[in-house]
Nucleic acid binder design. Structure first.
Lengths: 202, 202
DNA sequence: CGTGAGTTTGACCAGATGGTCAAATCAAGA
DNA sequence: TCTTGATTTGACCATCTGGTCAAACTCACG
């Protein structure tokens, strides 16, 4: 394992390569389905060399998840109480859908974890995520109280946004096997936009 | 492997026990994460004994999936052109949500497959599923043409139903870590009902 | 009963996999 | 250039895992 000093040029490069490769492999095969050898090969390293940078398979996975959780939650973080309610929510939805389009591996990485009961990120869910969601549902409820948007169960409103947007990344195979050549997001964007405009109009 | 005659009492019992155990294990850990030993133990059999009934791990998985696909698609199958459009669609949605509640393992079994690119059921997707969906979207489009329901992209309408209902089974941990003690389906049912009533009203 | 088919299992195997280690190689500053 | 720490690797290990097999056991039926 590299010493605890400032990372060298080589360390930076290799750590980044490992995390990039790990994202590919973990998102495609899940934790158990991924092999250290596969990650090492994809990162252009030998297995022992990879294990020189991370002490274990688990450590790579943890580093990857915790590094990405922030990115993943950023759009919700940005939901602004002082903005226009409908615009704020639609912006959030739009960003989430864009993330499904541009970061499908990240979406599937989390999906893999969650479907299997999130054995390695339960803490983050119950703490960071719950706190953030509680904070933002308060804003939503406030908007509903003011009659700015339709009254709905705020938690389920958020779940619906997650479900509808991430579906296109997580179940990409299914979506594409039905749509054929049509770009899923071409139709998804206006559909979801219409849906939430109708739903949120008081 | 048992002979090709009519199954004995013991064969029936053990085959059923194996499939039940396999559903538990595969849905919780994915194909790669499941072990034959674990399935055997959960079914109350030794590993060689299990492999006396199914020739391989893969065979168990295949048997399970193909057996459940029919059940899984039944609600969509029942969508009836001659019924009242809004009622037919809402019934479908309600049944799907109920399946998430009562058959979460089945939902996660498919979710695990799909998230990882459906390496073992790609055929079924491109054939059976696509055919069924094409058939039913035709009905939806017809209803839209008649002005009975709002005009929407029919494929994305179906995707949205899948996403919203299966979310509660597939990402159960996440939903519960946010809702706490509250029963997810208690709030989900009216929320989704409201959503589609608003969305589908022309 | 007795017998043959159906069922079960302990012992075993080969390959995969996560991880270790000492030795070899490389890179950068004195 | 030389030295020292950083980096890389081949060889190796223990464990897990899917699967096999021959022998033992059980059951249903004549």
């Amino acid at each position: 394992m590299p010493k605890d000093r400032a990372p060298t040029r080589i360390q930076k490069k290799n750590r980044a390569a490992i995390l990039e490769a790990a994202l590919n492999v973990f998102s495609a095969h899940g934790f158990r389905g991924a092999t250290v050898d596969q990650i090492a090969t994809e990162a252009g390293l030998s297995k022992p060399n990879l294990l020189y940078y991370f002490p274990s398979k688990e450590a790579i996975h943890t580093a990857l998840l915790s590094g990405l959780l922030e990115i993943w939650l950023a759009p919700l973080h940005d939901l602004d109480e002082s903005g226009d309610p409908l615009h704020e929510i639609l912006s959030y939805i739009h960003r989430k859908l864009q993330m499904s389009r541009e970061l499908p591996r990240e979406s599937r990485l989390f999906a893999n974890e969650l479907v299997q009961g999130a054995p390695r990120i339960n803490d983050a869910l119950s703490n960071d995520l719950k706190t953030l969601v509680d904070e933002k549902t308060k804003i939503l409820t406030h908007w509903m109280d003011q009659g700015k948007i339709a009254r709905l169960h705020p938690y389920h409103l958020i779940f619906s946004i997650w479900a509808l947007t991430q579906h296109y990344a997580d179940f990409d195979v299914q979506v594409r096997s039905i749509l054929g050549d049509e770009d899923p997001f071409e139709g998804a964007d206006p559909f979801i936009d219409t849906l939430y405009r109708k739903l949120l109009t008081p």
